[in-house]
């Protein structure tokens, strides 16, 4: 006998790359018509990237909201300069949309305002006690750190505070690390302060391979991502059984709509997750991975792909 679980909502994480304004707006026009329920918006990696200014982001948020999406504004993952804190204030005090905190400074600004907020992948919630503490300050949803396993999630869900939603990163290149150094500028032998916006040339980052040609990382400005694409579509039954409330897809330069369609169709029971996952995985330049979910090295693909 299975326990009937509510159908998880589908979310689109913030675009982690630097895309030109036109591409970004085109992308979100398609998202407005996609089956996604929640859209996270904002530049979270580098404050020098200014595809949209604050007003334009907020206008985009209104546009998506009018299209029936729940919009959440995401904050920067690494805050160093005073100008970045000022921008953070504007985001946290927008008065209209929920904010996803990706740094404890953002958690402070949101909690002192009495706002409810989302804990992004940048906040280290590794246990139920930490989650309960932050729920007491206004956290209404948390995104599980990507290195945690299904087994740890099960323990977390058993002790989850009332009223807090759980979101899992189910598709995309994994956010693995942040640095003061810009690796894209470094690749071009340019100083960070004069980077000439080279990230614009790499809509999905720069692939890092070993000298044996094994791709394993992607450089995205100050962020390091996995080269492999995490795909947990096959784990849909387990995600439902664990009562996960929200499934996050992280945008890629190509094919994001197809990913959202596949997840939505599988959630409705119209497609078989195994088969849909195989179709998606066949398009990936460096393959899929699900190791973290299985409690193994993150880059592994553990579930059979026969």
């Amino acid at each position: 006998m299975t326990i009937e679980a509510r159908t998880p909502k589908l979310a689109l994480g913030p675009v982690l790359y630097y895309w030109p304004k036109e591409k970004l707006l085109d992308f979100y026009e398609q998202i407005a018509a996609s089956p996604v329920d929640i859209v996270y918006l904002g530049e979270t990696i580098c404050s020098k990237r200014r595809a949209l200014n604050t007003e334009e982001w907020l206008a985009l948020a209104e546009r998506l909201s009018a299209a029936g999406k729940e919009v959440v504004l995401s904050t920067m993952a690494l805050l160093e300069a005073e100008s970045e804190l000022k921008a953070l204030h504007r985001w946290c005090e927008n008065g209209r949309f929920t904010v996803e905190a990706n740094d404890m400074g953002a958690v402070r600004l949101l909690s002192v305002r009495g706002a409810s907020f989302v804990l992004g992948t940048g906040i280290n919630v590794y246990n139920d006690r930490t989650l309960r503490f932050l729920a007491g300050l206004g956290a209404k949803r948390w995104v599980m750190p990507v290195e945690l396993s299904a087994e740890t999630l099960a323990a977390m869900q058993a002790e989850r505070p009332a009223g807090v939603e759980t979101e899992v990163f189910v598709y995309g290149r994994l956010p693995l690390a942040y640095s003061a150094r810009c690796f894209t500028a470094r690749h071009h032998d340019l100083p960070k302060d004069d980077c000439r916006f080279r990230c614009l040339d790499y809509p999905e980052g720069l692939t890092v391979s070993t000298r044996e040609g094994q791709a394993f990382l992607a450089l995205n400005g100050i962020q390091t991502q996995s080269a492999q694409t995490c795909n947990l579509l096959r784990e849909l039954a387990e995600l439902r059984q664990l009562k996960v409330d929200v499934l996050r897809v992280s945008p890629q330069a190509e094919g994001t709509e197809a990913v959202l369609d596949a997840f939505a169709a599988c959630l409705r029971g119209e497609r078989d997750p195994d088969q849909a996952a195989r179709t998606l995985n066949a398009t990936l330049p460096h393959g899929a991975c699900d190791g973290y979910w299985q409690g193994q090295p993150g880059l592994r693909q553990v579930t059979e792909t026969a």
């Binding site: 690494l78 590794y126 690390a177 942040y178 990382l217 193994q296």
Partner: peptide, 21 residues
């Protein structure tokens, strides 16, 4: 450490074990 400490998962991505965990 080249990465922000506490926010680097490179080690677990390749070996399964990280500083955080």
């Amino acid at each position: 450490c080249i990465m922000v400490e506490g926010r680097c998962l490179l080690s677990s991505y390749v070996t399964g074990e990280s500083p955080n965990m």
